[in-house]
């Protein structure tokens, strides 16, 4: 564990806490893409298949459980909670995310560390996570002004993988044979997808204005 990875995990946890706060405090999920939340639930379920078989550390296991439970709870809340589900922007959240699942799985069948079920599901989860934010970014562009908590949620979610890139650079230079090209390249693509969001987020912060993504 290095400081970059810890910062990344804490930022990721922060994004989830901000989203839970938004939904719980405002009893609303307006501006949040259910499809992105569903993709993240698939990402964690596919990536942490080893949850019950391998044990690295208490931290590792606890964080995996937190990510899986929180992502499923958010999906459940947006689908079935009486008050929350009414605030879901169903007509704006129309990204066909099934293609993202299919595409990521096909890519994982081609590029993986080893041709085993676990490694293919792991690569699938890495590729899917890289594109999972797309429905959310599209929804933000369509839903005009973005409320603060939603903006902070997306910001922390994008920043966490940026910290992981620093972690991979650090591990590349400090560990003998550290080659995690699948995660590194996918992480670069993932962070790059947030580039324009980060730009408009920075502008809104600098001008102290409401965050607004151009349609």
């Amino acid at each position: 564990m290095n400081i970059f990875r810890l910062a990344g995990d804490m930022t990721h946890l922060m994004s989830i806490l901000v989203l839970l706060l938004k939904i719980y405090a405002t009893k609303s999920c307006s501006g949040i893409s259910l499809k992105t939340q569903e993709l993240y639930a698939v990402v964690f379920l596919a990536r942490y298949l080893d949850l019950l078989t391998d044990f690295f550390s208490l931290y590792n296991t606890v964080m995996k459980v937190v990510f899986i439970v929180s992502s499923l709870a958010i999906v459940w809340c947006m689908r079935y909670h009486r008050a929350v589900r009414r605030t879901y922007d169903r007509e704006l959240d129309t990204f066909r995310h099934y293609f993202l699942i299919l595409g990521s799985f096909v890519l994982a069948l081609i590029f993986h560390e080893k041709f085993t079920v676990r490694e293919i599901f792991w690569a699938f989860s890495i590729y899917l996570e890289a594109v999972a934010i797309l429905p959310q970014l599209v929804l933000l562009q369509r839903s005009g002004n973005v409320d603060n908590l939603t903006g902070q949620y997306v910001f922390f979610l994008g920043a966490y993988r940026g910290f992981y890139i620093l972690n991979w650079i650090y591990r590349y230079f400090t560990e003998a044979h550290f080659g995690r090209w699948i995660a590194s390249i996918s992480g670069l693509v993932q962070t790059a997808l947030y580039a324009d969001f980060f730009y408009y987020y920075f502008l809104s912060w600098k001008n102290n204005a409401k965050l607004k993504l151009p349609a």
């Binding site: 990875r5 964080m63 560390e113």
Partner: peptide, 10 residues
């Protein structure tokens, strides 16, 4: 030898 294919990262 090849790195043990474990995923210690989240």
């Amino acid at each position: 030898g090849t790195t043990l294919l474990y995923h210690d990262e989240l």
